[in-house]
């Protein structure tokens, strides 16, 4: 999977924020605040070839119901893909 490099991840005092830059600002000129899991996913996007790889990566890091994790991770990735923040 590939990150859209026009979205820059920033660590501001322990808080992870995603800053849109370049022409993506035409559609979204704000900040994206992430929770811990979303920041973890963003950091590992390019290490994972497929969404299923990401599900495994998240499961390796966080405890929880496997079905819930799978559903939520896949939904989150699909949302990021739809808005052009990642590609796969």
């Amino acid at each position: 999977m590939k990150l859209n490099k026009l979205y820059v991840m920033r660590d501001i005092g322990g808080e992870t924020i995603i800053v849109p830059t370049g022409n993506v600002i035409e559609n979204f000129n704000g900040l994206i605040s992430t929770n811990e899991v979303a920041a973890f996913i963003w950091r590992h996007i390019e290490e994972c070839e497929t969404p299923d790889d990401m599900v495994k990566t998240v499961m390796g890091e966080y405890e929880g119901d496997a079905q819930v994790i799978e559903k939520e991770v896949l939904e989150f990735l699909e949302t990021l893909r739809k808005v052009g923040m990642i590609a796969y």
Binding site: I12, G13, G30
Partner: peptide
């Protein structure tokens, strides 16, 4: 500032982060 930015800045104030 919008609400997210305000929160970031308020946190920076408390922790002396040069935001």
């Amino acid at each position: 500032l919008n609400p997210i930015e305000r929160e970031v800045c308020n946190r920076a104030d408390l922790r002396h982060i040069p935001v």
